[in-house]
């Protein structure tokens, strides 16, 4: 527990340095609040009734409760709001996988700052937070949540077709994607775009390769990613980011930029986030917003692995003391 607390403390200090103030919300919310925040996503796994027969739910993440908090409690204040948190969230598990129904998240929400500035600030904070816990090799994947949906709309793909293609893509099934795309009545070069785009990931050059594939939706997304990337380079964190046109996240409230966090020492994703410019509006106060959350237990595992590999500054520091 001491190590986990230390991770938590280092993250909180990094958030504080960027002027983010800590907030806490109840673990139990009205189910209606969570459902309103994420219409496309799966419903909360753990639901029950209160003494008046109201349906309650254990929160599935911190972003929706914070959106509710800001719109109901900070009404008189002047945006932007820089908020951070550490707290438990609850999701269904897959049996026999060593997963926990309850997991600890730490993250920030920047509410009231538009893209690309807001996005770039949040990614800068994320990079600093990763450094603060010794994950200096961690990489932040940056993609666009609307890109593929808009591309399919541009090709006149029907709604249910589109949902099934997005489902296959969210399942990382590129073989299934090809089978789905082959059923569409589209030109060969459009087929090529749909199949090649999700495999493009890397440095700034992927934007050029994506532009060659063409299409108005692609151009718009590239424009958004390029301005975000410029802002990141200006903040000195451009090299922490991998541009990834195949990125999709499973939460339904994202609009525009989305991020995911990887560390070479571990095989699983450490966290993620993105822009959610429509979410605040659902709680009655329309404000642009972005944020991220790190899974603390996974960050802890990654830190331990990095130390084992002798790659983290913490390990080097300790090595010095031992001598």
């Amino acid at each position: 527990m001491r190590e986990l607390r230390r991770v938590q403390g280092a993250l909180a200090a990094a958030f504080e340095r960027f002027g983010y103030g800590e907030v806490a919300t109840p673990t139990i919310e009205y189910h209606e609040v969570l459902a309103r925040g994420d219409e496309r996503g799966a419903p909360a796994a753990y639901r029950f009734f209160d003494e008046n027969g109201e349906l309650l739910a254990m929160r599935t993440d911190m972003t929706i409760p914070i959106a509710r908090l800001v719109s109901t409690r900070l009404g008189g204040a002047e945006p932007p709001f820089r908020l951070c948190y550490t707290g438990n969230a609850y999701r269904a598990i897959r049996p026999q996988r060593g997963q926990m129904r309850e997991f600890l998240q730490a993250g920030v929400e920047l509410i009231g700052v538009e893209a690309p500035d807001g996005t770039a600030e949040v990614i800068e904070v994320l990079a600093a937070a990763l450094d603060a816990v010794g994950l200096t090799r961690a990489v932040i994947g940056l993609g666009d949540a609307d890109l593929y949906r808009q591309l399919l709309a541009e090709h006149g793909v029907s709604d249910d077709r589109r949902e099934s293609i997005l489902r296959v893509l969210a399942g990382h099934d590129l073989v299934g994607l090809e089978a789905e795309v082959d059923q569409l009545e589209i030109a060969p070069d459009e087929r090529e775009t749909l199949l090649r785009l999700p495999t493009l990931r890397g440095g700034r050059e992927v934007l050029d390769r994506a532009r060659e594939l063409g299409g108005a939706a692609v151009d718009r997304a590239i424009q958004r990613l390029a301005t975000t990337h410029d802002a990141l380079v200006a903040r000195g964190v451009g090299d922490r980011v991998q541009l990834d046109l195949g990125l999709l996240r499973d939460l339904g409230y994202y609009t525009g930029a989305i991020v995911e966090v990887y560390d070479p020492a571990v095989g699983h994703v450490l966290g993620g986030g993105g822009r959610y410019d429509d979410l605040m509006g659902r709680f009655g106060w329309s404000l642009p917003a972005a944020g991220f959350a790190l899974y603390l237990e996974r960050v802890h595992i990654a830190q331990a692995e990095e130390e084992r590999l002798g790659r983290s500054p913490a390990a080097e520091g300790r090595g010095g003391e031992a001598r």
Binding site: V139, G141, H172, Q242, D244, E260, D263
Partner: peptide, 18 residues
Amino acid sequence: ARLVANRVAHKLRAAEVD
């Protein structure tokens, strides 16, 4: 038979995997 890849390897070792 199918070829599968780890999510993180697919991102961080993109050139080799491709």
